[in-house]
């Protein structure tokens, strides 16, 4: 199976008229794990949302291509079916829709009509993934994210990732609000997906997550751009020294884009 390539070229993104991303360039290939790091407010989450097509974010210039196809021309559901997945920082609560019904609809959305996943096969797959992530089975019958703790929401995102098996997974601050045990479980789920074809973009501002998921590449974002890229050693240096040396090296005084992005 050919690996997928996600290419982000000179991406500019606005929210409510304010420019947050000011020319992001990034290429992720299947089989590679990329970490995007950076202080708060530098545009990391905006990048994730813009790739997936969040309604509040407007791409003003640049391009996103998945295997050469123009992602920006696709509806959100088409992006998902093309192979993109975003584990969201703040997943929506959908009252009256059970987690299980939602998961089944998501899986069936990728399949042809008449070729829906058999119910028993679905339950088996869901149960196995829930066991792997140490999720209480009750979650399947609870309404999607409604009343979930922060940790439950994150695990539910990874559960979806595991069941939907996208070509490229984007994880937006999947580690925020997790205690160390939950962090280990979530990391275990992500590492299980690691193979020659699965590409992953991990957005975080803590080195902590990268202790459990070793990235192949690390990118630093500041002022709405990727300002530095390197290997895992870059993350280790950030852990030890913080961001100041990069700012000094690049002559940056204020790293944010002047907006909580």
């Amino acid at each position: 199976m050919a690996v997928s390539t996600l290419e982000i070229k000179d991406l500019h993104v606005e929210i409510e008229g304010q420019e947050i991303l000011k020319g992001v360039n990034l290429t992720i290939k299947g089989g590679e794990f990329h970490a995007v790091m950076g202080p708060n407010g530098t545009g990391k989450s905006t990048l994730a949302s813009a790739i997936m097509g969040h309604p509040k974010y407007e791409v003003t210039s640049g391009s996103i291509l998945l295997d050469g196809e123009d992602v920006l021309e696709m509806e959100v559901d088409e992006r998902a079916k093309a192979g993109l997945f975003l584990a969201m920082q703040y997943p929506s609560e959908i009252s009256g829709v059970t987690t299980s019904d939602f998961l089944r609809s998501s899986i069936n959305a990728r399949r042809e009509e008449g070729d829906e996943i058999p119910l028993m096969k679905f339950i088996k797959e869901m149960d196995a993934a829930m066991d792997y992530l140490e999720i209480d089975k009750n979650m399947a019958q609870r309404y999607l994210n409604e009343g979930f703790s922060g940790g439950e929401k994150k695990r539910n995102e990874i559960l979806q990732l595991m069941l939907l098996k996208p070509a490229i997974g984007i994880l937006d601050e999947i580690d925020s609000g997790l205690d160390i045990d939950a962090l280990k479980i979530v990391s275990k789920g992500i590492n299980k997906l690691r193979n020659e074809t699965f590409g992953c973009l991990i957005i975080t501002h803590y080195q902590r997550l990268l202790d459990y998921i070793t990235p192949d590449y690390v990118h630093i974002m500041m002022q709405g751009r990727v300002v530095k890229s390197g290997g895992p050693e870059l993350a280790e240096r950030l852990e030890a020294e913080g961001y100041d040396w990069i700012k000094k090296e690049l002559g940056i005084e204020e790293e944010t884009v002047g907006h909580n992005a």
């Binding site: 309604p55 998902a80 079916k81 997945f85 829709v97």
Partner: peptide, 21 residues
């Protein structure tokens, strides 16, 4: 957006939200 980001069509996403409601 959340539902569609999992591949569910807009119409089906609306249907889910309304039935849930």
């Amino acid at each position: 957006y959340y539902l569609m980001s999992r591949g569910i069509s807009k119409q089906e996403a609306e249907r889910l939200v309304i039935h849930g409601f």
